[in-house]
Amino acid sequence: MSSFGFGLVTAAVLALATVGFTMQFAVTNVLNLAYGSVMINSAFVTYYLNIHGVPTWVALFGGVATGAIASWLLNQFVFTPFQRRNRPPITIVIVALGVDLVGTFGLQAIVGGSYVSFRQSPGHEYHFLGMFFSGLQLVILGIAVVVLGIIHWLLRYTRLGKAMRATSANPSLARNSGVKTKTIISTTWLISGALCGLAGTVFALNTGVFEATSAQLYIVLLLAAMFLGGPGEPYGAMFGALVIGLSTEISAAYVNPQYKEVIAFVALLGMLTFRPYGIFGSEKTL
């Protein structure tokens, strides 16, 4: 049962990350494989603010801003130029992979290879229903619930959110309806990038100790969660994250925790084979 509690927190972090990742794919058509490196860079910004005396939960906003700005820049100066030249999607995927390596090992060159951790005590230990949570974990769970609620509200009830969904479903028709899709796409990078930065920070907080390459394999979990729920489906992403988060932690309790990504990868392969549009998804249904 304690691994279930762990799994919930892992799932909450993964849900934050996957929703941003899937929004990028849905609205802007970029499978941003550099997502993990933006996460870890954001985590390090939070970390440096933190060790220079900024309280973790304030420093977190530095990480969020880093994710938002880095992602926006990435779109503006890397992905959009390639898309404008009508390069096939595989080109963008390869470019993103390159960016991921540069982002990760560039960071490593700057911060070094050693493990670090936040100045943040895990707080009280709480237990209910046979599960143990640290105060820190409860805060992470709370952040995830609130932020995902905000994303839900944004997508369902706001003009911006509806324009994002319209742009995802039919960009050409969106423009004919007066939607400046370019602005919507930029805004999507800011919002999804903020989610990425937030996810990176809480991922690092949840891990406890981390270093520049700690999020290297996270992309496997992201892809598994995204494909499980249906690519481009934010609600599917939340569901997929829950399944992947729980199953990887619970199975890690029984087999070697090193195999987490392997388990996620097997789930991903299964989805790609049997339900490439995910459990809920049709082709693209933000």
Binding site: A166, A169, N170, L173, K180, T181
Partner: peptide, 28 residues
């Protein structure tokens, strides 16, 4: 001119195919 500008000037266009946003509700 950009399609969104032409829309703003008062031209409404219904394409032959892909004429709605399928995942959005009728109201949306």
């Amino acid at each position: 001119m950009a399609p969104e500008e032409i829309a703003k000037l008062g031209v409404g266009y219904v394409p032959q195919i892909d004429d709605v946003f399928p995942p959005l509700s009728v109201k949306e």
